[in-house]
């Protein structure tokens, strides 16, 4: 029999080893599944790599997909650090898109240097307020934030639906649920290749958050805030304020992700921007074990996987659902792999 034993110290330099090992394991199982369908498994693996990382254009695709995911994950990670179980990034993303669109539609004639900051301000406020509601509900009425953020996700998406099917519908869209295309001033251009300037925003937000959490007292209290209201008694900030703060931070970050989607990649608001980034962000944040500096890697990895799987569909006619199966397997094995960082199996005597 084997027994589980906790390591004295976490496995040194183990993280890369574990990630690679877990990836290898889950990809191995996926290949078995491919082979069971009569598809060439090694070629499948190559296609996955080829579609996600092997070319400049595929790297661009992956980065573009990782950008909104990254911003949402940052916000989610900060909230989870405080043990605030905010699963509302999806709704905050929607509200951010709505806020930015409101500014873009109402002030189309402003020059870009004024309009873009205004759009981001509106997106931040909309996303932030949408996140503040569950915070207040929790603090004032003791409403569990998992349920309120989840419900607000549905409501936020329906609000977006209402706007694009109703008041904001483009009169020239032949009745389809789209807003007018934004004026050029409201659209963020490309920086390098097809990657837009939004990546700078990602870098700035990531850096600012890392510095804030590591170097400021408030940040330190958030990091320690996981211990809950009891520990916060010794802090100089009221616990309630910190809960509100992390929620708003998440709302702003997710809101900005939403505004980047409408402003940089689509140039208008439409229901299909809701691609589930807010939920995937939870996975990314936890895979990174809530460490701000690790989030970029996992966001990039997951985005790459989603992009690469399309290649598999196209070349091998593997159904879309197969991507979900593989992703689930990868997540589960990375998760199980992290176990070996802190534990090991030992042969038990007797």
């Amino acid at each position: 029999m084997l027994r589980v034993v906790k390591r004295q110290e976490p496995l040194k330099g183990g993280t890369p080893l574990i990630v690679v090992g877990a990836l290898a394991l889950s990809l191995g199982i996926s290949m078995l599944l491919l082979a069971a369908q009569g598809k060439p498994a090694p070629r499948g693996l190559f296609l996955l790599w080829d579609g996600a990382f092997a070319h400049v254009h595929s790297l661009e695709d992956t980065v573009l997909k990782a950008i909104p995911l990254y911003l949402c994950s940052l916000g989610v990670a900060v909230a989870f650090r405080m043990q605030v179980w905010n699963i509302g990034a999806e709704g905050q993303f929607a509200l951010g898109a709505i806020g930015a669109t409101w500014a873009a539609l109402h002030f189309p004639d402003l020059p870009a240097p004024l309009l873009l900051p205004l759009m981001f301000a509106c997106a931040g406020v909309a996303g932030g307020v949408w996140a503040l509601v569950p915070a207040l509900l929790r603090l004032r009425l003791r409403v569990n934030e998992i349920i309120s953020t989840l419900m607000l996700n549905y409501i936020g998406i329906l609000l977006l639906d209402y706007l694009v099917y109703g008041p904001w519908k483009d009169p020239t869209s032949f009745g389809f649920p789209l807003t007018r295309e934004f004026s050029p001033a409201a659209q963020i251009g490309r920086m390098i290749g097809r990657i837009h300037w939004g990546i700078l925003l990602c870098a700035a937000v990531g850096l600012a958050l890392a510095v804030f959490l590591k170097r400021t007292r408030t940040g330190f209290e958030i990091m320690a805030g996981g211990a809950g209201a009891r520990a916060a008694r010794y802090a100089h900030m009221p616990y309630g304020f910190l809960v509100g703060l992390v929620m708003v931070l998440c709302g702003v970050a997710s809101g900005w992700a939403g505004s980047l989607e409408v402003s940089a990649t689509l140039g208008r608001l439409q229901p299909s921007i809701m691609a589930g980034y807010g939920y995937t962000a939870i996975v990314v944040a936890w895979l990174a074990r809530l460490r701000i500096t690790h989030i970029a890697f996992y966001a990039f990895l997951l985005a790459g996987f989603r992009v690469g799987v399309e290649n598999l569909q196209l070349e091998l006619q593997v159904p879309h659902a197969f991507g979900g199966i593989m992703e689930g397997l990868i997540l589960l094995s990375v998760l199980a792999g992290q176990f070996f960082q802190n534990y090991r199996f030992r042969r038990a005597e007797g």
């Binding site: 299909s272 691609a275 290649n311 196209l314």
Partner: peptide, 23 residues
């Protein structure tokens, strides 16, 4: 022939169409 299914109508569509054309 080949196909890609369940492609959202946003930025993902642009990517999938481009990749098809490129291939």
């Amino acid at each position: 022939t080949s196909y890609v299914e369940a492609v959202p109508e946003g930025p993902d569509a642009e990517r999938v169409i481009t990749n098809m054309a490129r291939k």
